[in-house]
Amino acid sequence: MAERLVITNNIRKLRFFADEMTQLDLAERVNASRQTIIALEAGKYTPSLELAFRIANVFGVAVGEVFECRADAEG
């Protein structure tokens, strides 16, 4: 049976360490809406590869440090 990939992220933590950057600031810098950043942080949305790279570039880290992936049994 195929396993479901659960993608989590550290955006909230990275924002905190980036001088407590606001969600609105991050949204403007990656050309997304604040609603999308809220959904990302809540784990309700997984971004496209392009947005993931943009977010990582804002924090100056690798994509793998922003997003983490683990396999979860489906069902």
């Binding site: 403007e28 997304a32 809406s33 959904a39 947005l51």
Partner: peptide, 15 residues
């Protein structure tokens, strides 16, 4: 303007 456009404004990939 900035805050209002964040609420009702641009359409991004999730939208």
């Amino acid at each position: 303007e900035r805050s209002v456009s964040a609420v009702v404004g641009c359409e991004d990939e999730m939208d």
